[in-house]
Nucleic acid binder design. Sequence first.
DNA 1: CGCACACTTCGGCGGGCGCCGAACTGTGCG
DNA 2: CGCACAGTTCGGCGCCCGCCGAAGTGTGCG
Lengths: 236, 236
Amino acid sequence: MTSSRTGAAGLAALASLVADETRAGFLLALLDGRAWTAGELARHAGVAASTASEHLGKLVAGGLLAEERQGRHRYVRLADARVAQLVEDLAAQVTPSAAARPRTLRAAGAGSAMARGRTCYDHLAGRLGIAVTDALTGLGLLRQDTGFALTDEGVSWFEGLGVPLVRTGRRPLARACLDWTERRSHLAGVAGAALCRHALDAGWCVRIGSERAVKVTGRGERALAELLGIQPDTLR
Amino acid sequence: MTSSRTGAAGLAALASLVADETRAGFLLALLDGRAWTAGELARHAGVAASTASEHLGKLVAGGLLAEERQGRHRYVRLADARVAQLVEDLAAQVTPSAAARPRTLRAAGAGSAMARGRTCYDHLAGRLGIAVTDALTGLGLLRQDTGFALTDEGVSWFEGLGVPLVRTGRRPLARACLDWTERRSHLAGVAGAALCRHALDAGWCVRIGSERAVKVTGRGERALAELLGIQPDTLR
DNA sequence: CGCACACTTCGGCGGGCGCCGAACTGTGCG
DNA sequence: CGCACAGTTCGGCGCCCGCCGAAGTGTGCG
């Protein structure tokens, strides 16, 4: 009983960090995988700098964020891929109900860039992420029927792309991440991150503004069609 | 911005449900996969019945719990496997730090039954869960090197056991679930649930008390040794 | 029926927490 | 230097929320 009590206290403490709208907004913003300054986050959330500072202190103390001080700036980012996954999972749990379709076309337009393509911390999501995942599966590079794992051919494919996959720590080579716009799993893990990095490096897609949305370039359309047989229409 | 705001509000609202120690205790208790009455949970958490009632109302309204009324009893259970996974993931995130080893031998003894073997909602965890997962992997029935998926031989093995695996909805056949005592992944998903159910049905293990802990029986030791080559010592 | 019991509703209390502005620290720049 | 600016600390305000006990509802049982 005592041990379950302390377990409950810890669980509640962790959830408390996310249970505030301002802090939740910070975490969602940081899902782009980059480091933000305290001031940027404060403006993004519409709170005073002092308020943001206190929130960041809690999130760092709670192990959800990592910080890096540079001069008079305090940069923060999600602590690691595991925290990012947790935030994604929580967000995915919410949106099914909050997925109430936007009423106005304007609002629909605002969300549709995110729906077309975005990053999930360090891998691709949205229609773009799903298209890539489906293509890999169709080509026999990824198995989804009995779990979620690359095939040996899949590992070779990444090597052929010039992006060898190296396991780091406990992170799996391939992992399923639930997509909150498509309601299906897309590729995460080491392979998902490697592919996303390569896509950005090679100019297959570029970030839009300061949000998580990405846009597929003409070069990207050609590369995805050639390498994975993805029809450009799929991505629009 | 507006859309990210509402996303943050939803995320915070979900986390708020878990951010209370009493409600967190309910969720952890319900991780045994069974239905509890409101009164049982109230006593378990040490709060008044009226307090528990209010908490249950929120958890049900938030979609985390499903309820079933029978006469004057209100039975609640976790809404589905997805919620169970979320709670497990959150709990796993906490315990690495809270894994501070218990000081007294008495406390160590209390926790060790859970560490030896327990259920995680509907599949096996603890040393028992890890041993089974490792054995399946060693026999080539489960692949963990490139993700987490059963092999074709693995699917056949379950059929041979008399437990055919049927996919229901989106739930994957095999999924990795992070074990908070062993700090490694064990088998979850349809296969994990089927194996756990079979283990309980066939008397390989029995539940201890009203908690999640399970104990491997003599019959279970023989079956696990014969079918998977698991040494009984591994489980003690 | 009428009692026992599980659960719910309500009012009220108290503590915790998020918010801000003002004052302070520390960094960069001219 | 001295100013501008990022971030922090602090005090105080107000609200939200979890808690309880008392009263109310509905079910089962003798």
